[in-house]
């Protein structure tokens, strides 16, 4: 019964995640950027822009310029999450890819780093007056959601061990539309339910910053307005 419920939950969540993200990314891609507005100094070549975006996404360059505390905590969380996600590939692949095996030992520490970073961000949100002022209920809930996902995950490893082999069978089954048995430990059910919630809210929340950064004209435009005429379709109409 629980297996069916979770299987359905995951199908729905995944569909909403992919569908919602597709709609938003298509919207960003199709909306024109009529004016050249890179925040300068900006790269003067396309490869320079790629490098700028890489630094923004991989190193959080602008955040580093802004505030070292937010940068440390944010980086701890995001880098931790990235490793944890990579590590989770082993529940969806059989045999497990070699590079996932490689990441495996770091994944555990990454889980702690992630939760630590999140707790730090939450603390900042509560303690620093400026950030408390700009925080709404959804901002706290989002942090709470991620903290619970992280800590329930860690619990399965360090507190009440989950039969991970069966979980893997469940996941592999989901991928071929075969609903297999899911263990019913508390931490696992909480973990999976919250992950499904995260997938569902992703395309309708501030988590859109993930695709958004790639479409930000202040970051992704080449600084060459004098050398090339840049005209959006709706603006070109006005030339006539």
């Amino acid at each position: 019964m629980m297996s069916v419920l979770y299987a359905l939950l995951f199908y729905v969540a995944t569909a909403l995640f992919i569908g919602g993200l597709f709609v938003k990314i298509r919207q960003y891609a199709r909306t024109p950027a009529p004016l050249k507005i890179p925040t300068t100094p900006a790269p003067t070549t396309q490869s320079g822009v790629a490098y700028r975006l890489f630094r923004e996404v991989a190193l959080f360059e602008s955040l580093f310029k802004s505030n070292k505390w937010i940068w440390v905590l944010g980086y701890l969380f995001h880098a931790g999450l990235a490793l944890v996600l990579l590590r989770h590939f082993r529940y969806f692949t059989d045999p497990v890819w070699w590079w996932v095996e490689l990441v495996q030992p770091f994944g555990i520490y990454a889980g702690f780093a992630m939760v630590l970073g999140l707790l730090g961000l939450l603390g900042r949100r509560i303690v620093i007056e400026r950030i408390r002022y700009i925080s709404g209920p959804s901002d706290y809930l989002m942090l709470l959601l991620l903290i619970l996902i992280g800590s329930s995950g860690l619990m399965m490893k360090f507190v009440s061990h989950t039969d991970i082999v069966t979980v893997k069978q469940f996941m592999l089954g989901l991928m071929v539309f075969d609903i297999r048995e899911l263990p019913t430990d508390g931490p696992l059910l909480i973990h999976l339910a919250l992950v499904a919630v995260l997938l569902i809210v992703f395309p309708i929340s501030k988590l859109l910053h993930a695709p958004g950064v790639f479409f930000s004209p202040t970051r992704n435009q080449v600084d060459n307005p004098r050398e090339r005429r840049h005209v959006a379709p709706w603006a070109a109409e006005l030339d006539k």
Binding site: T31, R125, I131, G136, D139, K206, H209, G212, F215, S216
Partner: peptide, 19 residues
């Protein structure tokens, strides 16, 4: 009409970097 406006309405995570 403006990708900047659309993306900037969505993307803010209230991190506080600009505050």
């Amino acid at each position: 009409k403006y990708r900047s406006f659309q993306v900037y309405m969505d993307a803010c995570v209230k991190c506080g970097a600009c505050t």
